[in-house]
Design a protein around this nucleic acid. Structure first.
Length: 198
DNA sequence: AGAATGATCCTCT
DNA sequence: GAGGATCATTCTC
């Protein structure tokens, strides 16, 4: 089982399956490792997905732009985009080329390189290092340069973990979106201290 | 060319 | 719990 296999499963399954996996980031200052504890799925039939445009008459269609082009490309790549004038967000692209779906990595539990994460964040509190999608990219020094990067290759990799049992996963609605706000496509590890929000 | 929007974070109260 | 920061992207005119 490789990351590529997971990324070719239905995206809702991939979002669950990525829980527990490790994000490995090699920098000149050292190696950073974090465990994925929170994800969100964005699907091709989903008004909240960057690859989807909703017309005034309510019809939805795929629309490839310069920003979202990586979502339309091959799976197991990083889709990294800049938002709110401050933050980079990291996604794992799923589904074969042409289908714009992805899993947003919303939170990590620090495993290795905590001192460097703290330096990158300008904070010391371990709980505040990676408990949000913009926080974890800052801690892991991930920016637009990684957009399109193959996540099976250094210096940014996702290393699979054994599947987490369903009873240890909480499924809720996604955070911070307006459209399709009722879809329970956010997943996190029950009770984990690095989950971004209850 | 101009305006609106946003898969957030931080600092208050 | 609310509001401001801050700017790339996208759509509209």
């Amino acid at each position: 089982m490789t990351l590529l296999d997971i990324c070719l499963q239905p995206t809702l399954d991939a979002a669950r399956r990525l829980l527990g996996a490790l994000v490995l980031r090699d920098t000149v200052e050292g190696r950073l490792v974090g465990r994925i504890v929170e994800t969100e799925a964005y699907l091709a039939d989903d008004p909240a997905c960057h690859g989807v445009r909703t017309l005034p008459d309510g019809q939805r269609l795929h629309r490839q732009t310069n920003r979202n082009a990586v979502m339309f490309g091959p799976p197991a790549r990083a889709y990294v985009y800049f938002t709110y004038g401050n933050h980079y967000l990291l996604n794992v692209v799923t589904q074969p080329a042409g289908v714009p779906e992805a899993v947003l990595i919303r939170a990590l539990e620090p495993v290795e390189g905590i001192t460097l994460m703290a330096r990158n964040r300008g904070l010391d509190d371990p709980r505040q290092l990676t408990n949000g999608p913009g926080k974890l990219t800052q801690a892991f020094a991930i920016d637009a340069a990684f957009n399109g990067h193959d996540l099976m290759q250094p210096p940014l990799q996702v290393q699979l973990h054994a599947p987490v049992p369903d009873e240890d996963i909480v499924a809720t609605t996604r955070i911070g979106i307006r459209q399709a706000a009722d879809r329970p496509w956010r997943f996190y590890l029950r009770g984990n201290a690095w989950v971004s929000r209850r």
